[in-house]
Design a protein around this nucleic acid. Structure first.
Lengths: 194, 194
DNA sequence: CTCAGAACTGAAACTATTTTCAGGATACGG
DNA sequence: CCGTATCCTGAAAATAGTTTCAGTTCTGAG
């Protein structure tokens, strides 16, 4: 059926982006990766832009789903401290599983492309605002903070910066996570005890 | 003279990069922007890669020069608090002057490209390490901090993340600077008094 | 002035990639 | 089966961009 093939193509797009970024996003590579002909890409998605758009939308959705999942996964009978949940949410960006890494790379590319493309900037802004307000909410639960909005901005921007460090091999995923936790402690949102 | 023309070409490169990123870096655009023929680019810089390399090196040098200037501008008789100098160094990335913005855009692009290009990753890593160790030094001067290395990582990564927010229009330069100062206060490196 | 070498031009050749399209395969209701 | 609508292919055309190069202009020393 066609929808399966579409799906396969979108997944191939994600792998191609993860391997070479938006710059290395070639329809020939996508077709080869998906095991279909190059003509089929146009058939399903119109042109290169349509294909890329579909792939990036999918990345967006996946990220949103993961974020919601994280919030829902909390068992009601064993309440984890909100500071810990905050740390989890923020650190979920880092991790050596291929899917996590591919997602981070795609986001990194999307953010970089958004500088020059208002449409993409709008999409990034919306998704980022959702994420940041979720962080803001957890800050409110974790502690009385004087400037919770600023703290949410600082934490989310920090994660984005650390993501770049990690993806370029300047830090490990673990170091990035430790840095996030250190920042949370600095803001009084995580107790020092391990 | 040739060196003037070279300079003009490099400056044109910076404008082209600021306008369209590394992806939008076209030799035709550079030639048009510099008011020279396309053949001259090859004559002076060999090929596209050589041209791009020269342009990025120039961005690097400019940033380094600006940073040194900032450090040297401190008059010995009126010592500014190290926390303030730290804030200045970190906030110098944000600002609405075209040159500052162009420099930030170039860096943002370079960081994004470094994910897929080991050579660029090495260059970025080196420059980032220098900057971070300067921050680390100022932290040492500003206060006894339990984890100065982690603090330096957090602050520099934060600036990189905020830079992305600013360049995509998600925050203003001023908001980004305020966020940096808030983080510095949280880390006990800047007194609350204004 | 004149010549050599450096700076410079722009069109043509080349390369890489996307888009189109004529047609082949496949699924499926009648 | 048959017809047809959908899915799919891959080669050819179109497009976008870089590199080359034969030739022109400029510059300065002799």
């Amino acid at each position: 059926m066609a929808s399966e093939t579409r799906e396969r193509i979108i997944e191939a797009c994600e792998r191609v982006i993860a391997r070479g970024g938006l710059r290395g996003f070639r329809m020939g590579d996508v077709a080869h990766e998906a095991g279909v002909s190059i003509g089929l890409l146009s058939y399903h998605f119109g042109d290169r832009d349509g294909l890329l758009q579909a792939a990036l939308d999918h990345v967006n959705e996946s990220a949103a789903r993961r974020s919601e999942q994280g919030a829902a996964r909390e068992p009601a009978d064993e309440p984890r401290p909100p500071g810990e949940r905050l740390a989890d949410l923020l650190c979920s960006e880092f991790g050596d599983e291929p899917q996590v890494r591919a997602g981070s790379i795609a986001w990194n590319e999307l953010r970089a492309a958004a500088v020059f493309d208002p449409d993409r900037a709008a999409a990034v802004t919306r998704a980022t605002a959702d994420w940041q307000s979720e962080v803001r909410r957890l800050i409110g639960e974790a502690a009385h903070h004087a400037e919770p909005d600023t703290a949410a901005l600082v934490l989310t921007a920090l994660v984005e910066g650390l993501s770049g460090r990690w993806l370029t091999g300047q830090t490990t995923a673990h170091e990035a996570q430790e840095a996030v936790r250190a920042a949370l402690r600095g803001l009084g949102l995580l107790t020092t005890s391990l």
